[in-house]
Amino acid sequence: MAKIIVVTSGKGGVGKTTTSASFASGLALKGHKTAVIDFDVGLRNLDLIMGCERRVVYDLINVVNGEATLNQALIKDKHCDNLFVLPASQTRDKDALSKEGIEKVLDELDEMGFDYIVCDSPAGIEKGALLALYFADEAIIVTNPEVSSVRDSDRILGILSSKSRRAENGDKPVKEHLLITRYAPARVDKGEMLSVDDVKEILRVPLIGVIPESQAVLQASNAGSPAIHLNGTDVSEAYKDVVSRFVGDDKPMRFLDAPKVGLLKRLFGG
């Protein structure tokens, strides 16, 4: 059975699409056949982050409506052989999605032998977001260390535990993972940002990783290449750790402390 993972947050701009792209790429790099689906119909971004925007011919809505087959719509990633992108439609709105249509697509992906299906949720708690999380087996809750993002994540966790298919059928609840992104230890030290422990205490969900705030993410987006491929950067390392923890490896948390600034650097600036 393919495992369905939703990447969600409630709040926009916290790094869902960045995370979906890097997480799906990380699973594929580990040799798992992976599909990543953009649920943000009308505001599609995942194809840009994955750098495949010029290869989009058919999209999720076309497949749901039977205007194209899944094979026609899936775009093979340029970095990994076993990663496929299913883009959202740019021209339609979210009403074009239906529970039955999505279920059909997910079942078909399962039959095609995919190990993991990553669903990139749109922001908000409207139809697109609800459908993205409805079929999930596991959820990655992307949260920035600031109060409104944490509040929205809490809201999404409530929806996961009451409105997902697993909740409606009374099955085992959706497995929740907390991912803190855009973490700046130096600002935490100055009291300008919630700490990892603060966020964990408020949400009480197991932590799967902390992604440090980094310029590399913006560079990666502009270059159309998921941040996980920027070898040597802390963001790439942090995402690789997240994927390893997800598949069951025990990795200590990294990038939680501000880098020590030497005396000379402090005196003369970086």
């Binding site: 509040r151 809490d154 809201r155 966790l157 409530g158 535990s161 009480r204």
Partner: peptide, 20 residues
């Protein structure tokens, strides 16, 4: 289970015990 932001629980006519 945790009662999250936006959720509401009402124990009509009796007591409410929450363990999370």
């Amino acid at each position: 289970r945790p009662v999250r932001a936006g959720q509401q629980i009402y124990a009509r006519g009796g007591d409410l015990v929450v363990l999370a």
